[in-house]
C-alpha cells in the first residue's frame, strides 16, 4: 500500500500543509518539513514555484516570486530532497504548474520523484483529458499518484470521472476562487460539502482553499477526510518565520 493510502486509512482527520519550496529562504525547505512532521502534521504539499501561477492569489504569487528569486528550481528542489526519506515518513506531494515539469521532462521528473520518495503530485493545469492521453502511463510506471481537483462548479458526471482517475484522494477546492482569497465558509460552502459527502465517492476528499484557522478547518472536515492549509501558513511564515510553525499547527487542532 502506498504511503498516501496508508495515511488515509488512519482513523483521524488529516491536516495537510502547503508551502512554497525555497521560501522564505532557499534552504528552508527541509527544516520546514521536519518541523511540520514533528508537530504532527499528516501530509504536505511542497509547492514548486512558478512564474505565472494562474490559480493562486497574491500570497502564493508573492512566495513563488520570492522563492524563484532565492534560486529555487525543480533541479534545486530535487537536490534539497535527496535523502529526505531518512528524515521524514509522512506522505510528500509536489504541487505546481505543469510547464516546469514539462521542461524537466515528464519521465525524468517521475523517475526522480520515485528515487527520492515523493508519493504524489498535484498539477492543477494538467487536466484529465491531457493527462490520460499523454502522461498517465509514465506516471504509473513510476508509481506517482496524480491527484485531481474538483470545485463547486464541477458536474456530478465529471466528479465521478475524476474520482475514478484520481489516485489517493480528491482535492476538493472549497469555493470558486483562486487560493487565499475567500474569508470564512458560508452556506454555499457547507451545502457543497454536504452534497459531495452524499455522493459517497470512492476516494476520500481533502478540502483546500480558504482554510485559515481552527474554525474553517473544522467546518471543512465535518464530512471530508482532511483539509489543506496553504496561504494562511505562508502568511504566518512571512510574518513569523519558521519559528512560528509549532504554534500555528497547535492552533488548528
Amino acid at each position: 500500500m502506498t504511503r498516501i493510502d496508508k495515511k488515509l486509512q488512519e482513523k483521524k482527520t488529516l491536516l495537510s500543509i502547503y508551502f512554497t519550496a525555497g521560501y522564505p529562504k532557499l534552504e528552508d525547505t527541509v527544516p520546514i518539513l521536519e518541523m511540520l512532521e514533528s508537530n504532527g502534521v499528516d501530509m504536505v504539499e511542497i509547492g514548486l514555484p512558478f512564474s505565472d501561477p494562474l490559480a493562486d492569489g497574491s500570497t502564493i504569487q508573492a512566495s513563488s516570486t520570492q522563492a524563484l528569486k532565492n534560486g529555487m528550481s525543480t533541479q534545486k528542489l530535487f537536490e534539497q530532497l535527496e535523502g529526505i526519506r531518512e528524515k521524514i515518513s509522512m506522505p510528500l506531494i509536489l504541487m505546481g504548474y505543469f510547464n516546469p515539469v514539462l521542461q524537466y521532462g515528464v519521465e525524468n521528473f517521475c523517475k526522480k520523484c520515485e528515487e527520492i520518495g515523493i508519493d504524489g503530485v498535484i498539477l492543477p493545469d494538467l487536466p484529465l483529458a491531457e493527462y490520460q492521453e499523454h502522461y498517465q502511463t509514465i506516471f504509473e510506471k513510476y508509481g506517482l499518484a496524480n491527484i485531481f481537483l474538483i470545485t463547486p462548479q464541477t458536474s456530478e458526471a465529471r466528479i465521478k470521472e475524476l474520482d475514478a482517475a484520481s489516485k489517493g484522494f480528491i482535492y476538493m477546492v472549497s469555493s470558486a476562487s483562486v487560493t487565499g482569497s475567500k474569508q470564512g465558509f458560508g452556506v454555499e460552502q457547507t451545502s457543497y460539502f454536504n452534497r459531495i459527502a452524499a455522493l459517497k465517492l470512492k476516494k476520500p476528499q481533502l478540502v483546500g482553499f480558504g482554510i485559515t484557522n481552527k474554525e474553517t478547518f473544522q467546518t471543512a472536515t465535518k464530512h471530508a477526510k482532511g483539509a489543506i492549509i496553504g496561504s494562511a501558513f505562508i502568511k504566518m511564515l512571512t510574518e513569523t518565520g519558521v519559528s512560528g510553525i509549532s504554534s500555528f499547527v497547535k492552533g488548528i487542532r
Binding site: S51, D52, N99, P100, L102, Q103
Partner: peptide, 22 residues
C-alpha cells in the same frame, strides 16, 4: 521560444530552462 504551456495552451514560449516564463 521552446514548447511549453502558457495561458492554457501548449505552444512556443520564451522561458528559462527551468520552465519559468521570461
Amino acid at each position: 521560444g521552446k514548447t511549453g504551456i502558457i495561458h492554457g495552451s501548449k505552444t512556443l514560449l520564451m522561458q528559462t530552462p527551468d520552465g519559468q516564463i521570461t
